[in-house]
Design a protein around this nucleic acid. Structure first.
Length: 575
DNA sequence: AGTTATGGCGCC
DNA sequence: AAAGGGCGCCATAACT
């Protein structure tokens, strides 16, 4: 078993302190002092390939990564144990959801000291020297940060060891490793950035909106023109098309009653202004969310640099902070182009969530449908007379808890043909409706119901009337949440395992053109920027990583998790 | 003036 | 075609 090394950077300088520890967290030998932390870390990484134990990758790794990049070889780190992320996983598992998870908070709990609240995570990363400052770790003044890292790590190992059931414990450990690996990948992707051609983005914006306005804050020509035509189509009185209330009023004055300004509602309207309104919304959104201001803030110097928030979604999916990394509109993918001599290897897991359901529930019949290429096609052939659309609709409805529409008969067929899988999601829904907790395959726990929920549902049925209705609504909403959680969170488990496996395999690959590296991760999709001569090898690695993830997360299952992979120059050409 | 809520829509 | 689950972000409206 390779060693673990606890690591604490200095408050101000380039140095830091380290201590070898055992798996259980006992210190081995004497602590080390490093004048040049990056140099020492690079040497130890090459010699021992340790698991780095630190307060959080988010605070420690980015500056270290920048320093490592300046060293010959430009090594990255293989593995870590992220105390803050692991603390969050353990707290949720222990039913202490919402307790602060910083190193300082964990330390304070150990010492029965007042527990500091977590800092808000708003705003872009601060200057590097303050990232290292001890106050960011939320430690009480005078605390030795290295001692805190050692103590909290040892405590976490004890809590991991205490998890009931050998298989569950092993899976939770995998979750801990994958979550931590994700934190490394997130920092590396933030540093590398997604290749972004500003001139392509510009041309696209100009085509859609007209030339960039000289005065910031003014509307581009085509948007302004649309607004005028919209006014004319609605009686000529000026109004602000960005204001829902004014739009509703303008339509009402023409005798058109709308309950909202949603696009699908406008589409059902037979009025010349409806189409203009839809077009206006479309363009206004691109302008405000991904226009020139966005480009200035997030996509300079040929790279889009988002900030990922690992574990930012309760299901274990990542969130992002600023830049909307996980909501890049499809049309803007034109601007994502590989460097000359490089390619983008774009891969997404095909029909991940229904496959996860098949593997999770152990439904043999559904697993047979998930053993090949198109799951919905197979499902349709067995249960829906070849109607693929119906098969897809029904299965999605079952996973999301849909009740409306004409979905009832489809669900009935699924219940009859796949009782094990349907029983699985329905049991999860029932647990939620009763106020219980569900967990993902690897053991990530969902949050408990809020106090407001308990107030709303307690005795609501007996009370009758409106409060019964309200209680019933929130009961069912909680059921839909837990029903979906088991699938979405287990899919996130799998995707995280894929990411970790792929990252490890990519690190071993290098060519004359450079090293392939991850540049994007979005729920069930990865993008690798690779020298052209390595692109096909990368595609093969992705397949291998998916197989490894499937085995690690679901063990021996007949369910396949195929990746749909494309080697392209431009992201928009991947699908 | 600054903060919070809402509506709406982008992604999975 | 939308709707069911999860998010982030923007502009406006509604508050403190």
């Amino acid at each position: 078993m390779p060693a673990r090394i606890a690591l604490v950077p200095d408050a101000h300088g380039r140095g830091g302190r380290l201590h070898r520890i055992s798996e259980a967290g006992e210190p081995l030998g004497a602590p080390l002092k490093a004048a040049e932390l990056a140099v020492t870390v690079a040497e130890l990484e090459a010699a021992e390939h340790p698991r780095w134990v630190w307060a959080s990758a988010e605070s420690v790794y980015p500056p270290l990564l920048a320093a490592l990049a300046d060293l010959p070889g430009g090594r990255r780190l293989g593995r870590c144990h992220d105390l803050r992320l692991v603390e969050a996983l353990l707290l949720a598992h222990e039913g202490r959801w919402g307790a602060p998870r910083s190193l300082g908070a964990a330390w304070a709990r150990l010492r029965s000291l007042p527990v500091p609240a977590d800092l808000s995570e708003s705003g872009p990363a601060e200057a590097q020297d303050t990232l290292f400052a001890p106050d960011r770790l939320q430690l009480p003044p005078g605390t030795d940060p290295l001692a805190a890292v050692l103590a909290v790590h040892a405590d976490q190992q004890r809590r991991l060891q205490a998890i009931e059931g050998e298989a569950q414990r092993a899976r939770f450990r995998l979750l801990v490793a994958a979550e931590s690996a994700g934190a490394l990948a997130a920092a590396e992707m933030a540093q590398d950035g997604l290749p972004w051609r500003t001139e392509v983005h510009d041309a696209l914006l100009t085509e859609l909106l007209g030339p960039r306005p000289h005065i910031p804050g003014t509307q581009p020509a085509k948007l302004a023109e649309l607004a005028v035509r919209l006014q004319q189509a609605l009686g000529g009185k000026p109004f602000n098309p960005d204001s829902h209330t004014q739009v509703l009023r303008a339509f009402a004055e023409q005798g058109v009653r709308l309950t909202s300004t949603r696009v699908w509602e406008l589409r059902e309207l037979d009025h010349p202004a409806a189409e203009l309104m839809i077009r206006y919304k479309e363009l206004a959104r691109i302008h405000t969310a991904h226009g020139w201001a966005w480009q200035d803030a997030w996509a300079r110097g040929g790279r889009f640099r988002p900030e990922y928030v690992v574990g930012g979604v309760v299901s274990g999916r990542w969130a992002s902070r600023g830049g909307g990394a996980l909501q890049i509109p499809r049309i803007l993918r034109r601007a994502v182009v590989a460097d000359p001599g490089w390619r983008l290897v774009v891969a997404d897991a095909a029909q991940l969530e229904p496959r996860v359901l098949a593997a999770l529930s152990g439904d043999a019949a559904l697993a047979r449908s998930a053993a090949g290429g198109d799951l919905y096609e197979a499902l349709a052939a067995t249960a829906f007379q070849g109607d693929r659309a119906k098969a897809k609709l029904g299965l999605l409805g079952a996973m999301y808890g849909q009740t409306s529409g004409d979905i009832g008969p489809l669900l009935a067929i699924l219940r009859q043909r796949y009782p094990v899988a349907m029983g699985y999601v329905e049991a999860a829904a029932r647990t939620g409706e009763e106020g219980g907790i569900v967990t993902s395959r690897l053991g990530r726990s969902c949050p408990p119901p809020s106090d407001a929920w308990l107030d709303l549902t307690e005795g609501a049925a007996a009370a009758g009337g409106e409060s019964a209705e309200q209680g019933g609504r929130s009961t069912r909403a909680r059921g839909r949440f837990t029903r979906n959680f088991v699938i979405q969170a287990s899919a996130a488990d799998w995707a995280l395992a894929l990411l970790a496996a792929l990252r490890r395999r990519l690190a071993e690959l290098t060519g004359p053109g450079g090293r392939p590296h991850l540049v994007f991760f979005q729920h069930d999709e990865v993008v690798v920027h690779a020298p052209t001569e390595l692109a096909e090898q990368v595609a093969a690695l992705i397949t291998a990583a998916a197989d490894e993830a499937s085995r690690l997360v679901f063990g021996d299952t007949p369910v396949r998790f195929p990746m749909s992979t494309a080697v392209v120059e431009c992201y928009a050409d991947a699908k």
